[in-house]
Simulated assay, not measured.
Amino acid sequence: MNKQDVLDAFRFRHACKEFDPERRVSDEDFAYILETGRLSPSSFGFEPWKFVVLQNAELREKLLPVAWGGQKSIPTASHLVLLLSRTKDSFLPESEYIAHIMNDVRKVPAEALVGIRARYRTFLEEDFELLDNERAMFEWASRQTYIALGNMMTAAAMIGIDSCPIEGFRKANVEALLRDAGMLTGNEFGLSCMVAFGYRVREPREKTRRCVEEVVQWVF
């Protein structure tokens, strides 16, 4: 793998609006895609996400009336991932989830826990002023799921697999559907975005982007 290979993957990737329903991503390749999401960075290393792989055709069909941005990609995708983000109550410094991350996952020494929690609370209260706004807390967690989203789409492109990120949906309606199906329980998570994976049925138009001079500013 060299730099040109990586750039070629970025040029290959596009928002694939319709997939070839006869072609399936292999279990091995999809496990690789999910692993790049799992290994993605997050603020404070708190991993505020959950990836729900929705393969049930009936449930996908039920999504269509409330997911206008996935009318062709949802039913034809080899794999459809719903990215869930943590809500405020499950993401506070004293929450069970944060304790689990620090104690069981990261195995933070007991003497360091108080300082990390205090630093996290200061960040939420003062640095980003998130703590008094439930929606802002959710959106901050959602921004982190987009890091995992981008990594998964790039990883897929690097092995010739197409993807389509989907934000075109009615959030409350989709979440209600997920609750009815038992896929969303309690108040720990909300829906951040979706992403479909598969293989294109046609070649896309040439990728267009602003020139680098418009995008990048150097300060010396």
Rank of each mutant, 00 (worst) to 15 (best):
A77V: 08
S73C: 06
S90N: 07
V81S: 05
P65A: 00
L80R: 05
A67S: 11
I74W: 01
I74V: 05
I116P: 08
L64H: 10
G69P: 10
N56L: 07
N103F: 05
Q71K: 11
A99R: 06
E96F: 10
L92A: 14
S90L: 06
V108M: 15
V105D: 02
E111I: 13
G69M: 01
P93S: 00
E61W: 08
K88V: 03
D89C: 08
V81M: 02
R86T: 12
P109R: 01
S95Y: 10
P75S: 00
I74P: 11
A118F: 11
Y97V: 08
V105F: 07
P109H: 02
S85N: 13
S73D: 01
L92T: 15
L84S: 08
R119L: 10
R106Y: 12
G70L: 06
S95K: 08
S90F: 13
S78W: 00
P93Y: 00
P93R: 01
S90I: 02
E58W: 06
L64C: 05
V81T: 07
I74L: 02
S95F: 06
T87P: 10
L54T: 10
L83E: 04
Y120V: 08
K72V: 03
A67F: 06
I101F: 06
V81D: 04
V81F: 10
R60H: 12
E61R: 09
A57D: 09
K62W: 09
D104A: 12
A110E: 11
V108Y: 07
K62L: 14
L64I: 04
L82D: 03
F91G: 10
V53D: 02
G115L: 02
I74H: 01
E96G: 14
A77R: 04
L59N: 02
G70R: 10
I74Y: 01
R119G: 08
A110W: 04
V53M: 03
V66S: 04
A99G: 06
V108A: 03
K72R: 12
A57I: 12
E94Y: 06
H100Q: 06
L82A: 13
I101L: 12
L59V: 14
P93G: 01
S85V: 10
E61A: 15
P109L: 01
Q55T: 12
G70A: 11
F91D: 11
Y97K: 14
L113K: 14
E61L: 10
R119C: 14
R106A: 08
H100M: 04
L59T: 11
Y97S: 12
G69H: 02
P75Y: 00
P93Q: 00
R117G: 10
R117S: 11
V114A: 15
A118W: 04
Q71G: 14
L92Q: 13
D89E: 15
Y120I: 00
L92I: 14
K107Y: 05
N56Q: 13
L113M: 13
S78A: 01
E111F: 13
A110D: 08
L63E: 08
L59Q: 03
L84E: 05
K88M: 08
P93L: 00
T76D: 08
E58R: 11
A67G: 06
L64E: 03
K72W: 03
R119E: 09
K107P: 08
P75K: 00
L113A: 11
A77G: 06
T87I: 03
N103L: 03
E111H: 14
P65L: 00
Y120W: 03
G115C: 05
S78Q: 01
